[in-house]
Nucleic acid binder design. Structure first.
Length: 220
DNA sequence: TATGCGATATTCT
DNA sequence: GAATATCGCATAG
């Protein structure tokens, strides 16, 4: 892979580039970039693990209909839904269907690109692999909390989705993690070979669905 | 590497 | 009151 003078600037994704389908979006987001610009600096990383929570899925937070807490899942695709779980962690999702339809994609793993020192400070550790591996760690490292709920990732905001040209990941498909309902469905996607994918190793062996290597992390 | 456990806050029953 | 899309630490092999 070319690691020379190529311009690796991150380009903002437009909403019309996002698939209008939860499962397709979950796959599409593997290899894309999540960026958060705050006064303390930019943090960014490559998305390496997602889970789909599609329409009609009992495990989806939108399954029982619109409430005050899950309303962001019903926004047009490309908005953030943030929730707090187990008394300890925030998790970030990307809304994934048309306005009024509730579904989302959980972001579970990120490969840090920019702002590692900021992430280390937020996470209170300097162990690289533990900065952004897992949904709660990812949100904490990126400075994502309930204030981000409802933001438009495709708008002109501090938190946004980006792309570096030419990226394609070798994507593995497995069952989702931490569920008691609908636990059998193959709705978890990950970049094969990434050190920043969560969950037990045995899950990494599952079906390979694409076959081009993830490029080297761009130096920005 | 893997398994188990306790802590914790919010939401819904 | 129960359940939960988790984390960090402990322990065993």
């Amino acid at each position: 892979m070319d690691c020379g003078r190529r311009d690796t600037r991150i380009r903002r994704l437009r909403r019309d580039e996002l698939p209008v389908d939860t499962i397709e979006l979950a796959r599409y987001l593997i290899g894309k970039i999540l960026v958060h610009d705050l006064p303390e600096g930019r943090t960014s990383g490559r998305i390496v693990e997602t889970e789909a929570y599609p329409i009609g899925d009992p495990a989806c937070h939108a399954y029982r209909g619109l409430t005050a807490s899950n309303r962001s899942l019903f926004l047009d695709r490309g908005h953030v839904y943030v929730y707090f779980i187990y008394g300890s962690s925030f998790c970030a999702n990307v809304s994934s269907e048309t306005p009024g339809v509730g579904a989302g994609v959980l972001l579970r793993g990120l490969e840090p690109i920019e702002g590692v020192p900021t992430m280390e400070k937020r996470r209170r550790t300097n162990r690289l692999r533990e900065l952004t591996r897992g949904p709660g760690r990812l949100a904490e490292a990126m400075g994502i909390d309930r204030r981000c709920d409802g933001l438009d990732l495709c708008g002109d905001e501090a938190l946004w989705l980006g792309s570096v040209e030419g990226e394609t990941a070798e994507i593995g498909t497995t069952t989702r993690i931490g569920l008691s309902r609908e636990a059998h469905r193959p709705l978890r996607f990950h970049a094969i070979g990434s050190q920043f994918v969560s969950g037990p190793r045995r899950l990494l062996v599952a079906e390979i669905t694409k076959s081009r290597p993830l490029p080297a992390t761009p130096r920005l």
